[in-house]
């Protein structure tokens, strides 16, 4: 199968869906002739032009609000928010309006909106360009939360997001943009709510998201040399969450470590830990462990940034700990 980069998969997904459905269009800063800050719309201008690749002023609240109004009245906007940090300027539109309108209108109005952009530390981008704020959105009923780790997944899940009738938030780690992986030429989509077992194992389950999936896989490799067999499970979507696959893995390995780049309080690790405690308590042989970024604004200087984000070593050490219990 051909291999393409994560960012290329994003571009393909958008172009294919725009070709398929004339109501799909993109709002974003620099997504027109420039092709996007990350080349996410490069080469699309000639085909789609200014009607459907709409270069916006720096007006996140404004164009997100316009997108919500457009989604309420028959269109399928993609808001390219660039960095998810910028979405805080538009948060009211996402949470108070987009997320709630279907319910509050008694199901009369759909809001098929996609907001997508980058998350993640690792490039010294500092406190306003490195955040991973998806847990916050999982607390808001009405939003679907997608967090793809591979080129294959981002293409299939983004296409599903664009076709979905609800507001879908897509979180793409910028550290993944240049990673390559197999992506078929043929059309496919990936349903929401299906976790994937990235590596099978029998001693411990690593539930990992986004770029942490790559780290968890590396850790599993290292641990294998020590005779520890780690299973790596990637939920792929946080809302809906595929509890079945996660629980099946935990019941098999009897140990669980969550690796997630977002912050810990009320976060992904807490959710998985609660799930394990609620529904797999008697299968557990060791305490549940959570590995998250330190709860600080992401610092810029490389040694500081490295110190706050989960590391390979941290994963390996934590797994050794739970194996000794």
């Amino acid at each position: 199968m051909r291999e393409i980069r994560y960012i290329d998969a994003i571009r393909e997904a958008q172009a294919e869906e725009m070709r398929r459905d004339k109501t799909v269009f993109i709002f974003g800063e620099g997504i027109g002739p420039r092709g996007g800050a990350f080349t996410q719309t490069q080469g699309m201008w000639d085909e789609f032009g200014e009607k459907r690749l709409i270069d916006t002023p720096i007006s996140e609240l404004g164009f997100t609000g316009v997108a919500v109004g457009a989604a309420m009245t028959g269109l399928r906007p993609i808001v390219d928010i660039m960095f998810w940090d910028f979405a805080f300027e538009a948060l009211g539109q996402i949470v108070n309006q987009a997320a709630r309108i279907h319910y509050m209108s008694n199901g009369q109005i759909k809001v098929p909106l996609v907001v997508r952009g980058v998350i993640g530390a690792g490039q010294s981008a500092g406190g306003h360009h490195s955040n991973s704020p998806y847990p916050l959105y999982t607390q808001m009923p009405g939003l679907k939360i997608v967090i793809p780790a591979t080129p294959y997944d981002v293409k299939g899940l983004l296409k599903t997001a664009i076709r979905d009738d609800d507001p879908v938030m897509v979180f793409e780690h910028k550290g993944l943009y240049n990673t390559k992986g197999p992506v078929p030429e043929e059309e496919y989509t990936i349903p929401f709510g299906q976790a994937i077992v990235r590596r099978e194992g029998s001693d411990v389950t690593l539930v990992a998201t986004s770029r942490m999936v790559l780290l968890a896989l590396e850790a599993a490799e290292t641990l294998a040399d020590e005779g520890i067999s780690a299973e790596v499970v990637d939920p792929r979507t946080l809302v809906p969450l595929d509890k079945k696959t996660i629980l099946a893995s935990i019941r098999k390995t009897n140990r669980v470590v969550v690796v997630d780049e977002a912050f810990s309080p009320c976060g992904v690790g807490g959710e998985i830990a609660a799930l394990a405690a609620d529904e797999a308590f008697y299968h557990l042989d060791a305490p549940i462990k959570r590995i998250h970024s330190l709860s600080v604004p992401t610092p810029s200087s490389p040694p500081l940034e490295k110190a706050v984000v989960p590391s390979l070593e941290q994963i390996v050490t934590t797994v050794r700990e739970v194996m000794n219990q």
């Binding site: 009607k51 404004g62 609000g65 316009v66 997108a67 919500v68 109004g69 457009a70 309420m72 009245t73």
Partner: peptide, 14 residues
């Protein structure tokens, strides 16, 4: 105000 502008955007687009 902005959601109204959005509905207007939609009408124009369609």
């Amino acid at each position: 105000i902005i959601n109204g502008a959005g509905a207007a955007f939609s009408a124009k687009y369609r």
